[in-house]
Nucleic acid binder design. Structure first.
Lengths: 193, 193
DNA sequence: ATAAAATTAGTACATTTGTTCTAAAATTAG
DNA sequence: CTAATTTTAGAACAAATGTACTAATTTTAT
C-alpha cells in the first residue's frame, strides 16, 4: 500500500476510535512508523486528511444513491436495503458523524458540500414518498407537511444515530448497525397503509 | 454578579457561539477582563466549567420533568408545552448538544450522568405512551416494538436537532426553536388515533 | 482597626502541536 | 549508469494552552 493510503487508513482507524481532537498527526505517523515530515509531505495540512476522508464518504454515498435511482421501482424492500447500505458506509466513516458539527466548522468546504448534497437528497426523498403514496404503499390521509417533517426526522436520525449510540448504547459493529436498521425502518411503520 | 457567575456566563456565550475547541480559558478570561490566574482560582480545571454548565442543564431539565409528573393528566397540549420548554433549555445550553460526543468523552461523569438520566426518561416516556394509548389519544393497532423505536427516535431528534440545524439550516433563536417544535410534534402525528 | 481569609493580576513553565526546512535515501526516467 | 525526481527522516520553530506560583490587593470577621 502506498504511504498516502496507509496514512488515510491509519487516520480513519484512529479518528474512529479516539475522535478527531485527541489524535494528532504525530499519532497517525507513529502508528504506521513514518516520520511527521513524511506525513506532511503527503498532506500539507492536517485538515486535508479529514477532507479526503469526507470526500470518500461522499463518493460512496453518491454511488448508493445512483444505484437506487437506477432501479425501475422502489418498494419497501428496496428502501430497507438502501438503508442498510447507508448504515454500513456511515459506520465506516463514523468519526465524521460523531463530530459532524466540528468537522463542518473546521472545514468550511465540507459544510458547503453537505448542504447541497442534503438539498438534493431532500427532493429525492420527497419525490420517492409521493410515488409510494400513489402506489398505495404509504397512507394518503396525512397532510403534506407531515411528509416534509418526516424527511427532516430521517436526516437527523440518519446522521446522528451513531452519536446517540455513543452516548447511551455503546454497541459496536454488526450489533450496532442491526439495531439502527430497525430504528430507521420503524420510522416508516406508522406511515404504511 | 460574582466573578464565578461571570465566568460561567461568558463561557456559555463563547462556547455556544464558537464551540468548545476554539475557545480557551484565556478567551473567557479576556472577555470579562479578568486574569487567567483569577479564572483558574475559581475553576481549577477548564473542564470544571463545562461540568458546571452541564449540571445546570441537567437541573433545568429535571425541573421540567418534575413539573410534568406533577400534572394530573397528560394530553397532547401538555406534551407540546413540555416539548417547547425542553427546546428552550436545550437552546440555552446548545454547545453541549452541538458537541455532545466530545463533551461526554472529555468528561466521563457527564456520560455516566446522561446514561442514567436517559434510562429514567425512557421508562417515563414508555409509561406515558401506554396511558395515551389507553385513553384513546394514540393508536392501539401498532406492535409494541414500534413504540420503543419511537422513544429512541425522540431522543435522537431531541438531542441532535440543533446539530442538524448547524449543518443545514443555520436558523437562530425563535425561528429555530419554532421550526423544531413543529418537527418534534410532527413525530407524534401518525401515531394519533 | 487589625488580623485572617479570599480574591485577583501577572508571570512563568512545561507540553503539545501544526508546520517548515534540510539533507539523505530511494525511486524513476532517459 | 547517471541525472532528475520523489520520498523520507529528523530536527527545529513558533504559537498556543493548561496550569501553577507568587505577590499584591480586597474583603471579611472580630
Amino acid at each position: 500500500m502506498q504511504t498516502k493510503e496507509k496514512i488515510l487508513a491509519a487516520a480513519l482507524k484512529l479518528y474512529n476510535n479516539k475522535g478527531i481532537n485527541t489524535i494528532t498527526t504525530r499519532h497517525i505517523a507513529t502508528s504506521i512508523a513514518i516520520s511527521p515530515g513524511n506525513l506532511h509531505y503527503h498532506f500539507k495540512q492536517t485538515d486535508d486528511i479529514i477532507k479526503t476522508l469526507y470526500d470518500r464518504l461522499a463518493t460512496e454515498f453518491d454511488d448508493l444513491m445512483q444505484a437506487l435511482e437506477a432501479l425501475p421501482l422502489v418498494d419497501l424492500a428496496v428502501l430497507r436495503s438502501f438503508s442498510r447500505s447507508s448504515i454500513e458506509v456511515a459506520y465506516k466513516y463514523r468519526f465524521i458523524f460523531l463530530h459532524f458539527v466540528e468537522v463542518a466548522t473546521r472545514i468550511p468546504t465540507i459544510r458547503t458540500h453537505y448542504k447541497s448534497l442534503r438539498a438534493r437528497r431532500e427532493t429525492e426523498f420527497k419525490a420517492m414518498f409521493k410515488k409510494l403514496i400513489q402506489n398505495g404503499t404509504f397512507r394518503n390521509d396525512l397532510p403534506g407537511e407531515v411528509w416534509d417533517e418526516l424527511v427532516t426526522q430521517i436526516f437527523i436520525v440518519g446522521d446522528f444515530w451513531q452519536s446517540n449510540n455513543e452516548l447511551s448504547g455503546r454497541l459496536t459493529g454488526d450489533k450496532l448497525m442491526m439495531q439502527y436498521e430497525q430504528t430507521i425502518s420503524a420510522m416508516f411503520f406508522p406511515y404504511l397503509k
